[in-house]
Design a protein around this nucleic acid. Structure first.
Lengths: 340, 340
DNA sequence: CTGTTAGCGCCTTCAT
DNA sequence: ATGAAGGCGCTAACAG
């Protein structure tokens, strides 16, 4: 009783064929009500469970979706995955998670693993931009495995994407700082090969220029998303002849690091210096000095990405209806940039 | 070229049998070096990828591990999963994530889904304690599918678990509060049907008693892990004739809510009131008034759970070597409870 | 309505 | 050193 029964076991017990059992289990209308019920009962009694593996091999559909993210232990990606899972669950899809740890080799391995596992589709947030990468990704497209990027995307023909309005919201954030009376806005950015950081930078720069302020290369600091990076950035900024009086950071962590460094130096926020972060990490709201930031609506992003993927999986083979969804996000104005 | 080639395609191209191709691909020593290499080259050229699904069906091993958690978008579970994934990755296992949202029905569905998907093992953190649940979990054991609980466990024969020393660390936390001079220690607890909360409560209670303090039922407030719960608890506590002067909370979120409510009422922390949370959520460290808490070392927990599972999967069929690992955690003393 | 057959892609005896 | 055959569990023709 402890071994896993198959439809053959049920068939044998009932003296009917496996095909009939299969049909009955799938509620095929051609099967008499009587057998249908009999099969159902016996199946329940024997504790039969369909082997999805066999079904997958036969049908060519595994009902598994692969998700590739840089890391899972970040509030943003975890929330995106939650959204993905919530959307996929009613459709009977399972989610296989892969982390790249921002490692290019790992990213390629992940893609191959998922392809080997015969996933029906892949959702991914790019870690690295490289030609080797490009090749593997194109292979996914060639194999007709639906692929959707979210947040960190790449422009590849036939691949849909779900992102936020990075440019616009960066522009708004910068404009907001200027509206607060700040005149020398600095910017902390990330890996410049990634579109998201490029766009945030562009939005920032344009806002500065549009307001007739001086755009200063030294006001832009590229670094990782961490507290140390933020404090490092501040150190560098304050060493300038004409130091900035505000920072728009592409990372909440860097923003917090910056705030800590500024506070340590006795600089008052928001009176003397304003800061806006990015990502709406939980701590930004909880701080005594709450941090203004941009909500990336990760859950919605995950849901949307899953939706686009589902759509694409339905219309397989069909027209490559490349879809570029851009979600509108909100600038959350909090104490770190509110001079009233 | 875009269709997925099989070993038969390679065989045909090389005018040899599929069996030989299979053997060559698996580096079977009985295959001549020449064919071996030839096959490897052709496979590469044709961009052949092994179909893990077929392999899984044949071998009965899917190389997938199921992970069931209440939710993924919590720092704790996300970090555990990261640990799990890091440990499983070198062993070629993939991770399938399922969320229960604390819903019993969903939890049962998840287990069944994973069983149907033929996972080689399951790692789970219990959401609900119910008899229906018990039955399904026992079925997992009956089917000889290795199962390991982490954090929120259940005592079921044949099931290993990885937890932390909840009792001890709760005792330490309470003792610490008493050492700070606090005399009326309150406790915010969670779902009492879960062992972790029971143990934290017991540790708290024992420490109170051991120190000759009065254990007061009204000092214990059961609620969910949220800011509101914390503030609610404080409201209730301060309405008491003899209100407490410290809180040991089983949740960082409740601890923060409590702190906010206390601060709003002008109560000085830690001078007038001390607070210790649980979980080491990122924000606890970042706050201006950093919050004392317990680090649950989630990543290590994930790694350990994965290790125990791997061990169990190796020695399948063998003796039910039920393993109960208890990790030692640290009390992190920060400002919210440091009177010096 | 139901049984027979065949095949998804792979590996592994059993032959040779 | 290699080929042929069979089966993992399931379903979809194709027959009745």
């Amino acid at each position: 009783m402890s071994e896993k029964p198959t439809i053959y076991d049920i068939a044998k017990a009932l003296n009917i064929s496996a095909a009939t059992v299969s049909r009955a289990l799938n509620n095929n209308p051609k099967i008499s009500k009587a057998t249908c019920q009999l099969v159902a009962e016996t199946a329940a009694k024997m504790n039969y469970k369909q082997n999805k593996l066999a079904l997958a091999l036969r049908s060519g559909k595994s009902n598994n979706i692969g998700v590739i993210v840089p890391r899972i232990d970040s509030n943003f990606f975890a929330s995106v995955i939650r959204g993905i899972e919530e959307e996929l669950y009613p459709h009977q899809y399972n989610v296989i998670i892969c982390q790249t740890h921002e490692d290019e080799k790992r990213e390629i391995e992940n893609i191959n693993t998922l392809l080997n596992a015969q996933v029906d589709g892949i959702l991914m947030s790019i870690s690295n931009v490289s030609s080797e990468n490009d090749r593997v990704i194109k292979r996914v497209v060639d194999k007709n495995v639906p692929l959707v990027f979210f947040d960190r995307k790449k422009n590849i023909e036939g691949v849909s994407s779900v992102t936020i309005n990075d440019y616009d919201v960066a522009y708004s954030a910068t404009q907001h700082l200027i509206d607060q009376g700040c005149e020398r806005i600095a910017h902390i950015t990330g890996d410049k090969t990634l579109e998201i950081f490029q766009n945030r930078f562009k939005g920032y720069k344009q806002a500065v220029i549009d307001n007739g302020l001086y755009f200063e290369e030294d006001y832009v600091f590229q670094t990782k998303s961490s507290l140390e990076s933020g404090s490092l950035a501040v150190k560098k900024f304050l060493d300038l002849k004409n130091p900035p009086d505000a920072i728009f950071s592409s990372s909440d962590f860097a923003a917090l690091g910056a705030i800590q460094e500024l506070t340590a130096r006795g600089i008052k926020i928001p009176e003397d210096f304003c800061v806006v972060g990015f990502g709406n990490e939980p701590f930004t709201k909880f701080m005594e000095l709450s941090i203004s930031t941009v909500d990336q609506c990760p859950k919605e992003m995950g849901k949307m990405a899953a939706n686009v993927l589902i759509e694409q999986m339905k219309n397989s083979e069909s027209i490559k209806n490349e879809k570029k969804v851009v979600l509108t996000t909100e600038l959350l104005i909090r104490k770190s940039s509110s001079r009233k």
